[in-house]
Design a protein around this nucleic acid. Structure first.
Lengths: 128, 128
DNA sequence: CAGTATCCAATATGATACTG
DNA sequence: CAGTATCATATTGGATACTG
């Protein structure tokens, strides 16, 4: 298996190539949210639990560099930014959905109903 | 999104759950080979370029712990070991194939025909 | 044959404070 | 609002030598 280099990133095989673009802790959560609508930086920060500013910024820069996400800046007051999926981004989100579905299935075999769990969480949040 | 813990591993969501089991540099290459046949330790080591003994051992231990791979030890002389996919392992290999296919597609858009590339490599190896 | 053990460098992630 | 900068820690991965 050869080393391949695309855009200064080196990888060993096609799986490695994809996992470098969607792997790690934070890329999938960001991409998954953008499948629905565009998000502003602060919206992503609020909506993704546990993410730090540093990791959100780093994740967004890498997704832009890999051509999965588009960034639009609105210079007017108050200044803001909007992130959205590119067509390549939409393509990988389809894959993320497959990964997610397998995850849900295997978690159920471990006795965890993840969808019910987050539904319950949201209910409790609304009560606060 | 809650923290979920299964078998002492903590993760944030179903995608994270899967990527912890098949992500990293070496798990997919091992699983991908086992889809065809069982492999001995030394066969994997020879067949996977660049992998170190340390990472091969670590990868195999994690795949065993996650229930993706079975290990059989034959104590007789010469002693040897055989690794094979469990049914869960076979299930995730299906997903790895989807990831690989998307990888091949996106690499082609970057001008790289990976399959032709490795075919050429193997031809050169046989000449040696 | 199939690993362990040890040392070391690079990367990933988090916490906190600061800024155009 | 949307980031940077800095410091600290944890994890990952490679090289090398050794072993039941």
């Amino acid at each position: 298996m050869p080393d391949v280099i695309i855009k200064n990133n080196r990888f060993y095989n096609p799986v490695d190539y994809i996992l470098q673009q969607i792997g790690g802790t934070w890329k999938a959560p960001v991409l998954w949210r953008l499948r629905i609508k565009t998000f502003r930086y602060s919206e992503l920060e609020k909506d993704i639990p546990h993410i730090s500013q540093k990791m959100l910024t780093k994740t967004l820069r890498e997704l832009e560099a890999d051509g999965l996400v588009d960034k639009k800046t609105f210079a007017k007051v108050p200044p803001h930014t909007e992130y959205s999926l590119t067509s390549k981004g939409k393509q990988v989100v389809v894959l993320i959905e497959s990964i997610r579905n397998l995850g849900l299935e295997l978690m159920k075999k471990e006795g965890i109903d993840y969808l019910a769990m987050i539904k319950e969480e949201k209910k409790n949040e609304r009560k606060k």
